[in-house]
Nucleic acid binder design. Structure first.
Length: 163
DNA sequence: GCCAACGTTGGC
DNA sequence: GCCAACGTTGGC
């Protein structure tokens, strides 16, 4: 039985909330608090262990890709939805039928330097169709083409290589 | 801080 | 089911 081909993703996080350095320290984290159905569906239905993730710093100056992570655990219920004290509490969700799912991601590497959004936009020809460079694109979990992923690794002088 | 773009809610 | 109002995202 052939293994499913690895998929590639981009996940946004505000670095003043949770940065690539936080992930490096934690080694792994639950990608909780996502309250967007499209993003949830990607996590619930499509992200598999071993998939690679561009870790993107949003609401930063400049915003950009800070490094690489890897899906380390597939979809499971986001615990913040059951936490009454959390701003992400969802009273309509139950443990039997959780509405919000998350994956866990593990630290892979931090780029020597951030790849700014502006640099991605400047590579528009090579990165044609990449969602993060589209204006008005707010989705915080996005699929990325393998070719685009490889190009961003190069731009970030990543240690890892795709094969 | 501004505001364009987008997603969600809720009245009808 | 439509769509106006509202809330959020996120670049600048």
């Amino acid at each position: 039985m052939a293994k499913r081909a690895r998929k590639f993703w981009l996940m946004k996080s505000e670095p003043n909330v949770y940065s690539i350095d936080d992930l490096a320290g934690d080694e792994t984290t639950g990608w909780d608090s996502i309250r967007n159905y499209q993003a949830r569906n990607f996590m619930r239905d499509e992200m598999k262990e071993g998939d690679l993730v561009l870790f993107y710093h949003s609401n930063a100056s400049p915003p950009g890709v800070a490094g690489v992570a890897r899906v380390s655990r597939e979809a499971h219920a986001d615990p913040t939805q059951f936490d009454r004290s959390s701003k992400y509490h969802d009273p309509k969700s139950t443990p039997e039928a959780p509405r919000w799912m998350m994956v866990d991601v593990a630290f892979v590497e931090k780029f020597p330097e951030l790849v700014p959004l502006g640099a991605l936009k400047a590579e528009e020809a090579a990165l044609d169709g990449m969602l993060v460079i589209k204006r008005g694109q707010r989705l915080s979990v996005q699929p990325v083409d393998k070719e685009h992923f490889a190009r961003v690794l190069k731009m970030g002088a990543a240690k890892m290589k795709l094969r």
